[in-house]
């Protein structure tokens, strides 16, 4: 490893970047149910099927306000200092919004049937 040139290191790091980007892209393409799970302090508070939401509404979870729309879920406001969860915007297919200071997690779970099919 000592003889690796700058060029080789750049290639190694670039390939890690490519692998990560592919992973992110794959996460976004994977089909899945749209069940949003909202937890606070490790307890599940709500499970919402996003595709069955007709009119958008808000939920208050501690100091956070969650906006639920048809197919999308987002953090509308938060009382934490950095507000990163709010800036993250809407999520729909996969992923999660995490508010570290308030320990609130919004996660979109894939349908169990689809999970089983993938295995």
């Amino acid at each position: 490893m000592q003889n690796l040139t700058n060029k080789k290191w750049i290639i190694i790091f670039l390939s890690i970047i490519v692998v990560c980007s592919t992973a992110i892209a794959v996460f976004h393409i994977l089909p899945g149910g749209r069940v949003a799970v909202i937890t606070k302090d490790e307890k599940i508070l709500y499970k919402i099927d996003l595709s069955s939401v007709k009119e958008s509404y808000t939920l208050t979870v501690g100091g956070n306000v969650v906006l639920v729309e048809n197919g999308y879920i987002s953090m509308q406001s938060a009382d934490c200092p950095d507000k990163l969860c709010v800036k993250q915007g809407k999520i729909s297919e996969v992923g999660s919004i995490v508010c570290l200071p308030n320990k609130v997690i919004i996660r979109i779970d894939r349908n169990e049937e689809i999970d089983a099919a993938l295995r």
Binding site: F13, I16, I17, C20, S21, T39, E42, V98, K103, R107
Partner: peptide, 27 residues
């Protein structure tokens, strides 16, 4: 640390993003 504090693996979604940013900012 986040996995332990939140007791949830949901934060692992961020790992690929963090890895990319680590390489760029680290360089």
């Amino acid at each position: 640390a986040a996995v332990f504090v939140m007791k949830s693996t949901a934060v692992l979604w961020y790992f690929p993003y963090l890895l990319i940013s680590a390489i760029i900012t680290g360089a």
